[in-house]
């Protein structure tokens, strides 16, 4: 469809409105607005020149686009490699850090266990010391403390086999 025929798309109301406005403005309503102009050689030359310029720009745009992609790839490859290397290094570092964190945690648990055992031992020592202090503070206990107490089996002390009881004449 030629551009002259655009008015065919218009509704009758719009066409009538245009006629009315033309009348109000004092224009001839019958006068076609889009009259065909004469095609002079100068106009044809200019039209062709512009058409060639448009085609040239289209080609230039396509060529530019084609050139841009390899350049972008070439520029992006080192960046991608660097990012990949950095990512790998980062992953390795993360694994190392995780392993170290686990070892540290295990050691902390060991230290805590040892600390608890040490506390228990210290408490036991302190309790024993307290008992000793109490025993020393009482006189009976103090005397008892100076004697050597040997634990004996009751059976051994009650049934001497190789001894004989004698009386002491000096007493």
């Amino acid at each position: 469809m030629s551009w002259h025929e655009t008015a065919c798309d218009e509704s009758t109301a719009d066409q009538e409105l245009r006629m009315e406005l033309k009348d109000l403005l004092g224009l001839d309503p019958k006068m076609p607005v889009r009259a065909k102009a004469q095609l002079s050689p100068e106009v044809l030359d200019l039209a062709e020149e512009l058409r060639r310029e448009a085609t040239r720009r289209q080609h230039a745009s396509v060529v530019k686009t084609r050139r841009v992609w390899p350049m972008l790839l070439a520029a992006g490859l080192p960046v991608a490699l660097a990012l990949g290397g950095l990512g790998t290094w980062g992953t390795i570092q993360k694994r190392k850090a995780d392993a170290l964190a686990a070892a540290v945690q295990q050691k902390e648990m060991e230290v805590q266990r040892l600390a608890k055992a040490s506390e228990d031992a210290a408490a036991q020592v302190k309790a024993t010391q307290n008992e000793l202090v109490l025993a020393r503070s009482s006189p009976k206990g103090a005397q008892k403390a100076r004697e050597l107490v040997l634990p004996m089996q009751p059976s051994v002390s009650r049934t001497p086999l190789d001894t004989q009881t004698v009386s002491n004449p000096s007493r």
Binding site: M1, S2, W3, A37, V43, L46, A47, R51
Partner: peptide
């Protein structure tokens, strides 16, 4: 001019006519 080329106005002849009409 390449008469087989299509333009927004139709063929090349249509373009020439549209250009002559619209340019001024």
């Amino acid at each position: 001019p390449d008469t087989t080329t299509t333009t927004p106005f139709g063929d090349v002849a249509d373009f020439h006519q549209a250009f002559a009409d619209l340019y001024p």
